[in-house]
Amino acid sequence: MNEEQDGTNQPAEQWMAFQRIWGETFSKMMQLGLTFSPDSAPPDFMRQMRSGIFQALGQSWEQFLRSPEFMQAMKQSMDSAIAFRKATNDWFSKVQHETQTVSRDDIDAVMLTVRHMETRVLDRLEELAARLDEVTGHDKGNGRHSAAAAQHEPAAQTRAQKTRSK
């Protein structure tokens, strides 16, 4: 992490990188202007110029988007967005708790509990299926199913099948 290097230099470095990119872009565009001949038909001439300009711009932006300065700026922006979102979430949770209503955190906790229970039940069923396979001498596979067991497995072993239609 670069917290120690955070300071007045970073925005300046980012701005210099941005300036450098634009400087290179303009010089490439100037070179394009010198290579084109006025003998070509006007619409084609304009399209070629435009295409050349966009190509130069695209290359410069590609370099900029790969630069450490851009990625550092992106990280700062992301961290700010995450911090803002977290602060908003916490505030809403607090308000909901104070008004004795259910908050998103409470729903998350319940969902996680249900998921853990589901995982424990499914893991237990998988163990039982594996032991059954051992006893009956069927092929074992990875995961919750195997080719042979799939033909004989009880419906309970497959995950939450709400609707099945032919």
Partner: peptide, 21 residues
């Protein structure tokens, strides 16, 4: 790929991102 660069752990904390969003 740019995504490979942008997703590097020093630039993108996916745990905090998922916890927040």
């Amino acid at each position: 790929g740019l995504l490979n660069l942008w997703a590097r752990p020093e630039y993108f904390d996916v745990d905090k991102f998922v916890e927040a969003f």
